[in-house]
Design a protein around this nucleic acid. Structure first.
Lengths: 351, 351
DNA sequence: CAGCTTTGTGGGAACGTTACCGCAGACACA
DNA sequence: TGTGTCTGCGGTAACGTTCCCACAAAGCTG
């Protein structure tokens, strides 16, 4: 009764109720050594009785570990990043840690501000999709840190987790080839983006392996948006071509835009044009036809990133790049030209 | 140099460098009263020089305010909740607070666990979309708390923020009527859900106002999923009907499923069937045709929730329910039967 | 110039926890 | 029985901050 009703109970309240010192109470609650089983039980009961809950702020102060992790992504509203956040959340929760989530909107200043906030909050480490080009804001972060996403490769000294673009491209191209599309057109992102170069390099490597001449693939650029994909596809459709056109877009939004352009041109997907996307956003499922795409493992990336961050925090300084495998999501946007005669010829297929 | 290189600088380091006591340094940095301008300047410079950053853990301990807020939603991967989270994030950041985000997956036990974690982290308050039916886990939360979403109404003592279902339904029905659909069919959620009753009540009220007999509206139930909507629509299409069918679905996913069922039946939307959704998820934009829907203001709800939570924290005990207005997103899934002859009649419209 | 207020500063306690050290008692062994 | 080790527990310092109080110097009033 000595304790004012509105105060949260502390370990001292527990100790008093159990008739021991606070050191003993702390030891009992920490489950550590040199405690009589009987004493431990008394303390635990007392803790339950007063409704004690350990104050993590105080623990953090004393131990230097706050039990919190930071996550700075471009936009939680973007389904891919939401997926990443979800994976990170779950993995952190399994380890008893909490996640502070921030959206940077691809703005270096916002990013820097969020990192400052994280430092002040004394998070144990941070997972960041770096938007800032300059090393200045980031390398002085001074906290265990792990980068995520393709832009991470600009920073050679910092471990990173990302999707395996090379494997994804191989997966996509193999699928296209299997369906009878030998040399698809490419819709890529802006030339300034690192991801674009990575994607294109992977395509080239794949082509070399399969004796395909990459030079025969038409390429169009655009912003990583629906509108960008739509315009790129329009340009592609303006070019002279023979037979069925297949397109591999570097991004699902662009792929969705491309499908719109196909409809705008009075053509049909997949009858006249096949579209393959890259990302695996849920919207692709509800488009008509459903968008066949190579899905990035957002959730797994988030989980793996937290694991990697824990490694960094425990000062295993072994620097690593981790690439998570993607998988193919087959829906309806790809025509199968392999087992039957092309649809635009008379319908005299093998069956 | 007295300070070991790996330690983060404290206010004592700043004080020593500025040649003042830590009290004075604290006052200077807090920007508060009774400081010579010259002293303040010296302290601020010293702080910059040593790279001082205030330790929020310590501030939280001392002041009882951690500067952190909790957000517990069903799933950050769900676009509506991601939108809410984004609004909350931004609003919290503007007030200098950080957000701890958790996903409960509609699991009461996970929810309870997350709330415990938040309490231990000593957040200043929490925003929760309550999934637990029982008051037990929640009312004993013991922290300033604000509920969000339609399930919040089960808890009469706790302030809440949600979307204005009545206004949304009115908006949707008015739009349907304006387009010439007098008595649309309804696709609703499971009978157990509170949101369903609210939706239906709003429909009835609207009908009374407009002298429409609600009894003539066909109603089908289903889970709040694509599959649920698909099956409900299938049942609707099996019923005998005359002319164009219009459907108001209580959820965008169901609406998308309904559109699939229309296609499955060899019919065309919007020529044969009009579909109106409710939520405003991005996928609706990429469906074909684009889903016309009543959009919930997710982001605004998140922002308003943080504001309301701040009110709760500052012990304004005034209990409130806040309903945020929805808006109509007109895309392509609704036929206009008003200004022209119905499409299924000969194409002899007024124009 | 005595007594008062005002202003700027320093000292110390407190927030809740854990780590370290010391101490008392039990026990083993010569 | 004396010496040494081990076990269980209590006391205290420390983490970094802010708040309260005390104190000195300066300014003001009569």
């Amino acid at each position: 009764m000595g304790q004012s009703r509105n105060r949260r109970p502390t370990i001292i309240d527990v100790a008093e109720r159990a008739g021991v010192s606070k050191s003993t109470a702390a030891r009992a609650l920490a489950g550590s050594s040199n405690i009589t089983e009987e004493t431990r039980e008394r303390v635990v009961k007392a803790a339950e009785a007063v409704g004690y809950e350990r104050n993590h702020l105080a623990v953090g102060m004393r131990s230097g570990r706050s039990g919190m992790l930071g996550l700075v992504i471009p936009d939680i509203t973007n389904p891919f990043w939401a997926d990443v956040a979800r994976g990170a959340q779950d993995r952190a929760a399994r380890a008893g840690a909490s996640l502070l989530v921030f959206s940077s909107d691809w703005d270096p200043e916002a990013e820097a501000a969020h990192l400052r906030t994280l430092r002040r909050a004394r998070v144990d480490g941070a997972i960041v999709n770096p938007v800032s080009d300059s090393f200045d804001d980031l390398d002085r972060f001074g906290l265990p840190c792990l980068f995520i996403g393709s832009s991470a490769e600009r920073f050679p000294d910092i471990s990173s987790v990302g999707s395996d673009i090379a494997q994804a491209v191989r997966l996509g191209l193999d699928h296209l080839v299997a369906k009878g599309h030998r040399a698809p057109a490419l819709i890529l992102g802006p030339k300034s983006r690192l991801a674009r170069a990575r994607f294109l390099r992977a395509v080239h490597e794949h082509c070399v392996e399969r004796d395909i001449d990459p030079a025969i693939m038409p390429i169009e650029d655009g912003e990583y948006t629906v509108e960008g994909g739509r315009e790129a596809m329009k340009r592609l459709l303006d070019q002279p071509r023979v037979g069925h056109l297949a397109v591999f877009a570097a991004n699902d939004m662009m792929a969705l835009g491309a499908m719109m352009a196909v409809r705008d041109a009075g053509l049909d997907c997949p009858r006249d044009v096949s579209v393959l996307g890259f990302d695996g956003i849920p919207s692709g499922e509800f488009a008509w036809p459903g968008l066949t795409t190579v899905a990035k493992p957002g959730r797994a990336i988030g989980e793996r990133a937290v694991e990697g961050l824990f490694d960094e925090i425990e000062h295993k300084p072994e620097h690593r790049r981790i690439y998570m495998p993607c998988r193919l999501l087959e829906r309806g946007s790809l025509a199968d030209l392999s087992s039957m005669a092309p649809k635009r010829a008379a319908g005299a297929g093998r069956n």
